[in-house]
Computed example of a mutant assay.
Amino acid sequence: MVKRVTIRDVATASGTSIKTVSRVLNKERYVGADTRERVERAVADLNFRPSFAARSLAGHRSFQVALVCDNPSPAYVYAMQQGIRDRCEVDGVRVLTQPYDRGSPRLLADLDALIATSGPDGIILTPPLSDNDEVLALLAARAIPFVRVSPGTRAGLAPATFIDNVTAAKELTAHLIERGHRRIAHIAGPRDYATSAQRRAGYEAALLAAGIAPETELVVEGRYDFASGAEATEVLLARPAPPTAIFAGSDEMAAGALMVAHRRGLRIPTDIAIAGFGDDALASYVWPPLTTVRQPVRDLAWQAADLLLNRATPDELREVAHALIVRAST
């Protein structure tokens, strides 16, 4: 039977004390660079894997962070999980992922139970929960550190990561205008997502900058999913003067728009141009491939975890760069 390597073995191999090894493992300060290097080398050589339970008892921490999300896009959730895991792995921290339904009457009770039973050292909130007043109040009452991804309200309440949704949407709409379109429709996301309002604001700003008056009948609300994109496109194409281009607030909604256009026998982009937002893998799999805005979700997640693990101050905001990706759909 293989003997399990213990913290005492690491201390012996590195010529330090158990307390010093513990400080290095817990990323504490006041450990010399040479000493830290010796301990880390011994950890690697011995393939030492510290016990979460033991570390918790010793340092009054759980060495766990929780991702609390409610998003209809599996691609978004997966990228968010991967980015947080990439960063937490560096510090030997475990990630708890808990999907929630923002419309459930048990939302707050379930979140409170997660905190009480798992005791995470911090929480990462994604839209729309990052702007949910009741959730924010619960976390404040529990005095648990948290980071918000893409918040739209109460700046400075907690550290946050974001992209400039307004500028990104403005750039994409300007691209459609440069292609000669004047009747550009927008399939917006749900109203309780701050990103929905931000992207609509960028869309309208680009129209106004080109001397085009925004038309209410050319904006239809969706749910950031395929089905609502298809439903919204049917509504838009039934207008007396249908649009020549559609900017959907997510790639999944844009894919739904593509499906309807294909079913109606419309040529893309000759008869109608369609663009999305996000640059999920889906964007390059559909035909024709989607013009979209690249939202680097994995980077947003990594930065959010980094803010949490480094105990950033509430006013620390990190912007992650977006990019306009032009493909055959426009």
Rank of each mutant, 00 (worst) to 15 (best):
I212S: 01
V2F: 13
A174P: 00
P72I: 02
T330A: 14
V5M: 01
F226A: 01
A304D: 04
Q295D: 11
E215D: 15
K170D: 11
S14I: 05
N132H: 15
I212H: 01
A328L: 09
G92F: 03
A188H: 00
T16W: 05
R239T: 06
T216F: 01
Y76S: 04
L107W: 06
Y78K: 03
H175R: 12
R55P: 02
R182H: 13
P243H: 08
L138F: 05
Q64M: 14
T167D: 14
G92V: 04
V260T: 12
H322F: 13
T244K: 02
L114F: 02
L108K: 02
T161R: 06
A44P: 00
R200T: 13
R200I: 14
A13W: 00
I325Q: 13
P105C: 10
S14V: 05
L218F: 09
S284V: 14
A210G: 06
R200C: 11
D299I: 09
I187F: 06
R148V: 05
D9C: 06
A11S: 04
V293W: 02
Q295L: 12
A54C: 09
A143W: 00
L125R: 03
P72V: 04
S250R: 07
E89G: 02
D279K: 04
V39S: 03
M80L: 15
Y100T: 11
R142S: 12
L258H: 10
I18D: 00
G32W: 00
